[in-house]
Amino acid sequence: MWKFIVRRLFVTFPQILLLSIIVFLMAEMMPGDALTGLIDPNIDPAAIEAQRERLGLNDPWHIKYADWVSGLVQGDLGQSFRFKMPVSDLVGQRLLNTFWLSVATLIFTYAIALPLGIISGRWNDTWGDRLITGYTYVGFAAPLFITALVMLWVFGFQLGWFPTGGSVAPGLEPGSWDYFVSKVQHLLLPAFSMAVITTVSTVQYLRSEIIDTKQKDFIITARAKGAPESRVYNRHIFRNSLVPIAAFFGYEITGLIGGSIFVENIYGYPGMGQLFLDSVLLRDFSVVTVVVLIFGIAAILGALISDILLSIIDPRIRIK
């Protein structure tokens, strides 16, 4: 298994490298550069040109790319044109916020998907199953941003159970218990409303996988051994049905990135998704570049994690 993981890591590095090149070239194609907008338009164009030359802005792309990457590695993510501060400062706290939001969403997603999928798959074509399948159809049909808005309105404004914006109540001391509780409170509603929607594909996946596995020959073997139904399900059906769910995990992460853009904006939650939309709208390209890069890396790591999970569950993957 270790061999597999090492080999898988070897694939990950070139993937990230390729991603960074693409992101960089896309950024290069955007109009303007670091000096655009910083400089008083009355200055002599020749002087600006000289400045460009001095800063290396006229170098061929691969040299600029090398500079950029070495900067990235040292934590220099560039300057934001609009916020007039280093991108690394801008990203830092938000990245953490989005990370926790994603973790909470994933927990909710699987907390909903596993029981529903199992009930629906084990007792398929019963009323319970029809109810659950009905929910998944609604989930597929309802756009995330509408669901999030409705949830915000009902649970945030009408019922007042949850805070309606930000990631933490103002005036609390970071590191204190109250601070932590407030952080969690701010997470729950956005995470839950995202999970309610993203979970439906996992529910359906798990359901059909269980129905499929139920009819496999080795399940008959298990019954012929005299295994009671509960054991047949727990030992033989569920574990085998989880294989594709693990494979699906990487895709789930990618989905979270898209989801966070909507949810963070609706809930006013200061995270990467919100930053992404803001910087796009403000044409703050150096920030967009970094955010896209981080999203891309997250997707690549998601795929990596799901492959590793898969190799732990499924012995057939480990060999070849």
Partner: peptide, 21 residues
């Protein structure tokens, strides 16, 4: 209680009759 103890079965397709995991 009786299956797998008093009576047992051999299946046709050895490729699918065992749990792959």
């Amino acid at each position: 209680q009786m299956r797998g103890d008093d009576m047992a079965m051999i299946f046709q397709d050895p490729l699918t009759a065992l749990n792959p995991l």
